[in-house]
Computed example of a mutant assay.
Amino acid sequence: MTQSISRRTLLRSAPAAIVGTTSAALLTHPGVAQAISAAEPATRGDAYGDWSAVTYLPLQCQKQRIVNEQAVRTTPYADFLDTDLSVPSASAKAIQFGPLDPGEAPTPSAQNLNRLIDPSFKTKDNGYAVLGGQMAYAQSRIVMPGVTTDMFKWWFTWHPVEKERYMLWFPQAHIDTSVADPARLKDTSLSYEKRLFNNPNRIQEWIGPSRLDAIIHFSEPAALGFDAQALAREGFTASASAVCYATPAPDIPFTLMVHIARDTSAGMELFSRYWIGAHADMARFANAEKAPSMLQHIGFNEQVAEMTAYEMSVHDMTEFNHLARILPGIHHAFG
């Protein structure tokens, strides 16, 4: 049964729903990426070239870092808590000058999912946009030297078991995680897909200055609209893709999240997409027709959608580049 939902409760759960928080908007726009300093480039010998240290985070994230450092300090993972964040300078610059052109921002249709894996399809590595006034969109392509799809799949069955593991991924933004059936997730006799898919994962994290409380339903890519044969043909052997629900409204899908990965000579190549909000192309998911009124109720308008899209782009860029940096060592120690 749907829980009672209000503007206040969903603001604590919907990503970057910062309606009425003028001060937060001032703090985060133009935002994190524009405050990334190139004065302290990280030493990363890969195809991206220059790297930049992330030197701005919302106050909420600064406080979360302190909490997470204390939480991780007494765990076996303490040596792997790295709070120095860095991203490719080109990626940071790519989102500093506004959203993608409308023709470059795909809707969440099954057809557009499959365009993503079409080798003839070309698009920017990083970008964000607003679709139809009530849907935020963000995209990224990240190459992870030293990371394999096997490591990636291991990570998604290892980190949700304890919130301290989740904190390692983005120490300034990740708060908590849990999974519906932890025993199944830890059962190494099962395949990755049987452990993770249809085993709901609740997460709490900061997206910019706004707290997200959501339930992630990881699924077979084909259930989301992908052509499984096309994925295999193009070498994609790992997926952590899902439909997501706000915890106060666990029956209303408000996000389609795509993470598909393949191994390359340069390292694992990860394509990510986020469609957050309401759109007619979400109709293939049960109860999607309820999303527009839910979002309208909490004031998720075009301005909020744009802020959400931008902050999601920054968050994704930061957390997955950081995961690329820390995953080989963590996997070696605990995998």
Score class of each variant (00 low, 15 high):
M1W: 11
S4R: 13
T9A: 15
L11Y: 12
S13N: 09
P15N: 04
A16R: 11
I18A: 11
A25Q: 12
A47I: 01
Y48K: 01
P58V: 11
L59K: 15
Q62E: 08
K63C: 10
Y77R: 03
Y77T: 03
S86L: 07
P88H: 05
S91Q: 15
S91I: 10
A94M: 07
Q96N: 08
Q96H: 04
G103E: 12
P106F: 03
L113W: 01
N114H: 06
D118G: 08
G133I: 11
A138C: 04
Q139E: 05
R141L: 10
V143H: 09
Y166W: 01
Q172K: 02
I175G: 01
K186R: 02
Y192N: 13
L196F: 06
I203E: 13
W206C: 07
S210R: 01
D213P: 00
A214G: 09
I216S: 13
F226K: 03
A230N: 14
T237F: 03
C244V: 07
F254E: 11
A261E: 01
M268Q: 13
S272K: 03
I276Y: 12
I276P: 10
M294G: 00
G299P: 11
F300D: 12
M312I: 13
T318W: 00
E319G: 04
N321H: 12
R325H: 10
